[in-house]
Amino acid sequence: MSTVDQEVSPPPNVNDPAIYDWYREMRDNHPVYQDPVTKWWVVYRYADARQVLTNPGTYSSEMHRMGFPETGLESLPQMDPPRHTRVRQILGTAFTPHSIASFEPQIIRITNEIIDELIDKKRVDLLHELAYTVPIGVILEVLGLPAEDRPLFYDFARRVMEVTPEEMAQPDFAEALGSLQQGAVSYLRERVRERKGKTNDDMLTRLANAELNGDRLTEDETVNFANVMFAGGHISTTMTIANAVDLLDLNPDAQAEVRADPGLLPDTIEEVLRHRPPITTGLRASTREVELGGVTIPANQHVAASFCSANRDERQFPDPEAFDIHRKSEGRHFGFGYGTHHCIGNALGRLEGRLVMKVLHERFREIAVDRDAAVWALPPQMVGFDQLPVELTPA
């Protein structure tokens, strides 16, 4: 059976609220559907999406299966087990819960320093003036890189996130992406070589010298993971921070609760990630013909798990359209991916989200979103804003 020929209305923009009614229609009537434009098989129900994200033998992350050339730039998100397992285990020796928790003072300091520059302004674009700058500043400091190098990674990350699904479906996409990455990759390669054999207390040094039972990361693996931290990690955190500000502004009762009890922030960030995940889809490649959701997907096809739809699936989450900061959904939603490729930097992203919101609430007694002037992000793989103007009232 195939649903590609069944009539389906075109989807609204991913940042149009009408998209959620469209997702519900797809979950009910077209749970696995081949998009006529991209030719991706998009999976809309939670249970089916979980199948895609947890079965790498059938749904591979190695995009060279789709005819993309192997460029030597493959990184953790593009690996399958056992290669992925090996690299992730070695990374785990450097990216420990203790090491992530130790960054709390830096995150608070960087957030306060950026707010100090904004405190006298009554109106700011919170996305560009804080939600972008804090994560980049944090990652630079975590990796032990100078703050003046921020523009290189800011520009690269923005360009990566502006790539459309139509561009990704082109045969020369991997080559084009490799060319786009060259500046950042060359810079990081030099820094990795500088840190080999050193004992500096920064994440790049730990990665360059990470070892598990005598096994070390190759230079390419180290460089590519550091690159992923910039390209993916900072964008996800940026969108999470901006979405948290907007969703709390839209839900004043929840806002008041969180301000009165910062201990609610962990569950609040989880609900932000469920309700409005920063990245829309998890893309895989089918390794064989497979039936999913009553649909037969041929081998060597793009299969995209829709995080936005799955996170609103009423089969998994009661009253899924409600923004409920008391919902216990950590470990179940797809806000930072799921399964084998659950984001290894998720703990850092969650920590940044909680701490930035805590500092914002301490420094400002009111953060009012100018909804008429806000501009949603256009790239279809991001959920969030391109501009988020707010009126600030200092505490």
Rank of each mutant, 00 (worst) to 15 (best):
R315D: 13
N243W: 07
L348F: 03
F364H: 04
E330R: 15
T281V: 15
A377H: 01
P320Y: 04
P318A: 04
E352R: 01
E321Q: 12
V303D: 08
R274D: 03
Q301G: 11
V359T: 06
Y338D: 10
R315T: 15
F317G: 01
L283H: 05
D246I: 13
A256S: 13
P320S: 06
G331F: 06
E362K: 03
Q301M: 10
A347F: 11
D372C: 08
V375Y: 01
H341R: 11
E271S: 10
A285S: 12
D249H: 15
Q301N: 11
T340W: 08
R371F: 02
R274P: 13
T287V: 02
G335L: 04
L273K: 03
S306Q: 10
A377T: 06
L250F: 11
E321G: 13
H341Q: 13
A304T: 02
V295R: 00
A285C: 10
L273M: 11
A304S: 13
I367G: 11
L378H: 14
E270G: 15
R363Q: 09
S286G: 14
D372R: 08
V245Q: 04
V272L: 03
D370G: 06
A347Q: 12
L264N: 08
E330L: 14
L248F: 14
N300P: 00
E330N: 14
R315Y: 06
D267M: 07
I325F: 04
R312P: 09
D253A: 14
E289Y: 02
V290F: 03
R288S: 14
H326A: 13
R327Q: 05
H275E: 05
D253W: 01
I325C: 11
H275V: 01
T281R: 07
L248W: 07
D246P: 07
T340S: 13
N251M: 12
A256Q: 12
L360S: 05
I367T: 09
H333S: 05
G339T: 14
H342W: 11
K328S: 15
N300Y: 09
V369M: 03
L264M: 11
R350G: 06
T340M: 13
F323S: 13
R259K: 14
S286Q: 10
T287R: 00
C308K: 00
R259G: 14
H275D: 07
D246R: 13
P277F: 00
K358C: 03
R327W: 01
V369G: 05
D267C: 06
R259I: 15
N300K: 12
A305H: 04
V369S: 02
C308M: 09
F323E: 09
V369P: 04
E289K: 07
D319W: 12
P298G: 08
V258I: 13
F364E: 04
L273W: 01
R350I: 15
E321L: 11
H342P: 05
A244Y: 03
H326P: 10
I325A: 09
D372H: 07
N300T: 07
A373H: 05
H275K: 06
C343G: 12
N300A: 10
E366R: 07
V258M: 11
S329G: 14
